[in-house]
Design a protein around this nucleic acid. Structure first.
Lengths: 194, 194
DNA sequence: ATGAGGTTGTATCGCGCCGATATATCGACA
DNA sequence: TGTCGATATATCGGCGCGATACAACCTCAT
């Protein structure tokens, strides 16, 4: 969800919408897009919620000539910043390792801010995510082996490619989990190695 | 888009919504989901468009007792079938190799019905798709090499994984394209091999 | 210097799609 | 007999997208 991405980026520095969008796009590495049609409504919602506040300079430094046009727009740059509640909210999201954290929509954003989370939460989310993806993989595998003989080449190819993708994600997650466990042991100084 | 998936499946056999959903899920191999919140409105839209018609038996075979409850629901199974216009529409979609055919949302469905399309359209779509994915890959690569030194491990890992995914899709598409070209040469009997 | 084109920047509209939810029927099995 | 799970239809609120409009600014060739 956008909420966390916006909170996380504004937590680093105040920004206006346009830059926020570019940063989110870069952050997620193409995992998810972010259109203006989502961004501005989201900012509005979050302002109403009290997570963020908007400093609107309207560029009063510029003097308008007397015969200025109707100036219907008069939109100035709006710089957004986190409020105290916003910071609190973001910290809450960081600490939360609940099931929603490993669903498709949230996982990417969640992962992008892993550096600000502690090892236990990271592991919980990664393992939850892996279980989730494994379930999908098994479903796909079953469905594929059931229909393998009865469908045309392209349907097969598509399903196989889908299966390969989730398979790859499982492997990726497993590597990350292993790596986290090594780190944790190094930090814990060896209690319950499992 | 759902429209084509529904048309394509109903083109094989009439079905009711519930089964339609299962078939679409299996067809796309997890590429896209399909919730009831999309399905039923889509069916409604398509009925209004005249692509499909609904045979509603309402189960009149069953005799209601005189003291029957309000029967607020009284929903019977609705079997949907393609109309002549619907078949025409589906054929039109199959023949169309326009740019929308290789965008993310449509490509999966489009590909699932490749068996009913001819080689030239298949090649056009596959090559369009490859160009599209290559663009994204190059953008990602550039962004990654720009920021590589300035971001934390997890952001890097996420972006790298995203890049690997699109890279993999490009390779997949290339194999498919090669394979199509071999087939075409075999059929054409060798004119303009390129 | 002027004006064309590109980038920055804010904002809205319609609509597709999702998740959650409500409701009803049917078969299986205890 | 009752209850559970699968089958089945349908709606609601809300999010996110693509398209679009608008406006200010910068650069660069003419």
């Amino acid at each position: 969800m956008l909420e966390m991405a916006i909170l996380g980026l504004l937590n680093e520095a105040p920004m206006h919408g346009y830059e926020l969008r570019k940063r989110v796009l870069a952050l997620l590495g193409g995992f998810r897009a972010l259109s203006y049609g989502s961004l501005y409504p989201a900012l509005k919602r979050m302002r109403e919620q009290g997570w963020i506040c908007a400093q609107d300079p309207v560029d009063t430094s510029r003097v308008l000539p007397a015969d200025a046009p109707p100036l219907t727009g008069k939109r100035g740059k709006v710089v957004y910043a986190l409020t105290a509640e916003g910071k609190e909210r973001f910290q809450g999201l960081l600490t939360d390792g609940g099931p929603e954290a490993w669903e498709d929509e949230r996982f990417g954003v969640r992962f992008a801010f892993f550096a600000q989370t502690d090892v236990d939460v990271r592991l919980r989310i990664l393992e939850g995510r892996r279980r989730r993806v494994e379930e999908r993989r098994d479903g796909l595998r079953a469905s594929l082996s059931r229909t393998r003989e009865r469908v045309d080449r392209y349907t097969l190819e598509l399903q196989q490619h889908g299966l390969d993708s989730v398979d790859r994600e499982v492997r990726w997650l497993s590597e990350l989990i292993d790596s986290e466990k090594v780190d944790r042991v190094a930090v814990d100084g060896n209690e319950n190695t499992l």
